[in-house]
Computed example of a mutant assay.
Amino acid sequence: MALLAHERYCEEIVRLTDELRAAIRGADLGATVPTCPDWTLRELAEHVGRAHRWAGEIVRTRAAGPVEDDKVPTNSPGSDDPAALDAWLADGAADTADALREAGPGTEVWTWAWDHSTGFWARRMAIETVVHLADAALTAKVPYTMTPELAADTVEEWLEIVRFAQSHDDREAAELLGDGRTLHLHATDAPGAEWLIELGAEGITWSREHGKADVALRGPLTDLMLVFNRRLAPDSDRVEVLGDAGLLDFWLARTSFG
């Protein structure tokens, strides 16, 4: 799958943060996030804002190694004032997008992953916000849907993360090394949004195609993405599981990464 344009990712960091701000506006910031039960809604929002600023600092300084948290100018709102949190989220997203635009997609910087470029951080921060916007919307009980391009990219990036984890001997991901069993994701509302995933002995592989698999997950693309990221239960009536449901559960349990 081709990546989205660098500028699109920069725009989405800001747009999705605006949606997150709207989702939590007027909500109980002390409410527990069902999909991240160790966090309150305020803590979820602060996590997103800190992640943006951390990535932005790596890009801005052209860091050759990870930046320690205490070196990141978070300017945390430090109060229970919802307006201060709202402005802090907006500023962090805008500043990070500006740093990414200034750097362009091909500047070499430290990342924890397979791609050591500023383009990695643009994509990663956009998708980080895609997923945590879902957490916020679920907690605040407001509607959530994602554009097809971003929902598909979120699925694709997660597959890349799983394969990267396998190649670096992650204990959970290593349990997905297998004998060729297959999973099929089939979006019912987005032509071409299908993935055939094989659990191979050397690591997972996948292709964008329709095919028979040991288990198939069917439903709207946003909902497939939410199941894949463990934000929607696979037994939800919004999706359909055909075949070996235990294999899908096995996959989900071993792609939580803590």
Rank of each mutant, 00 (worst) to 15 (best):
P143Q: 14
Y144A: 06
Y144T: 10
T145S: 15
T145H: 06
P148K: 05
P148T: 06
E149H: 07
E149Y: 08
L150K: 08
L150I: 12
A152W: 06
V155P: 02
E160M: 11
I161Q: 07
I161P: 00
V162T: 12
V162H: 12
R163M: 07
Q166K: 09
S167N: 14
S167D: 14
H168G: 06
H168K: 12
H168R: 12
D169T: 03
D170L: 03
R171Y: 00
A173H: 06
A174V: 00
E175M: 07
E175G: 02
E175L: 13
L176G: 14
L176N: 10
G178F: 05
G178T: 09
R181D: 10
R181P: 03
R181T: 13
R181Y: 03
L183I: 11
H184W: 09
H184K: 03
H184L: 05
A187M: 00
A187W: 00
A187E: 02
A187D: 04
T188P: 01
T188C: 00
T188R: 01
A190I: 04
A190F: 04
P191T: 02
G192S: 09
A193M: 01
A193Q: 03
A193Y: 02
E194I: 01
W195H: 11
I197G: 09
G200R: 03
A201P: 08
A201S: 14
E202A: 14
E202N: 04
G203W: 11
G203N: 13
T205E: 15
S207D: 15
S207G: 10
S207R: 15
E209L: 09
H210N: 13
G211W: 06
K212R: 15
A213M: 14
V215W: 00
A216K: 10
L217S: 12
L217W: 07
L217P: 14
R218D: 13
R218P: 05
P220W: 07
